[in-house]
Computed example of a mutant assay.
Amino acid sequence: MDKILLNGLMFYGYHGLFPEENKLGQRFTVDLELKCDLSKAGHSDQMNDSIDYGEVYEVARTVVEGKAKNLIEAVAEDLAKRMFESFSSLEAITVKIDKPGPPIPGYYQSASVVIERERHHAI
C-alpha cells in the first residue's frame, strides 16, 4: 500500500482532564500516515489523483483546535473519522498525537497515542 506521511503538524488545543488544560491549552503535535493507491497520481502528475496535503492539514487543524476532549485518544479517533469522510481514496490511516509535558507526576517529555484505522472500520 502506498503512503503519504505528514509529520510534525503543530496545533494549539484545549484537550485534557484537568481544568487548567481546558483553560490554558497547549501545543499538540500530530503525525499522519495516509494509506492509498498513489499509482494514478504517479502517472498523471495531477493533484486530483492524490490527496491534497494542505486539505489534510486543514482537517487536522479543525479537529485538534476544535471542541475540547478529555482524552487525546478521542481526538485521534475523531481525526481518523474526519479524514475518511474528507478523502474517498483514503483506505487506511495511522494517527499519532503527542502531548508534550502532560500534567502528571514525574518527568515526561510527552505522552502519545497511536491509532490505526481502516476504511471499513470508520464510523
Rank of each mutant, 00 (worst) to 15 (best):
K3S: 10
I104S: 05
V64H: 05
S44C: 07
S39N: 12
V30F: 08
T29C: 05
M83E: 03
I115R: 01
K81S: 07
K35N: 14
P100H: 02
S86L: 02
E77M: 02
L34R: 00
C36G: 02
K96V: 13
D31C: 00
G42V: 10
N7Q: 15
S50Y: 01
E65A: 12
L90H: 03
Y57D: 06
A41F: 08
P103E: 10
I104R: 11
K67V: 13
V75G: 04
Q46N: 12
P19S: 12
K23N: 13
V75N: 03
V30E: 10
Q46G: 04
E85S: 09
E58G: 01
N70P: 09
L5K: 15
M10W: 08
S110H: 11
L71M: 14
G13F: 13
E21G: 04
Y12F: 15
E85C: 04
K99Y: 09
K67C: 03
F84Q: 02
L90A: 11
R61K: 15
V114G: 00
K3D: 03
E58V: 03
L5A: 14
G101I: 09
Q46K: 15
I93E: 01
T94S: 15
S88G: 11
D31N: 11
Y53H: 08
N70A: 14
E21V: 02
A76K: 01
M83C: 05
P19F: 12
E55H: 11
S89H: 08
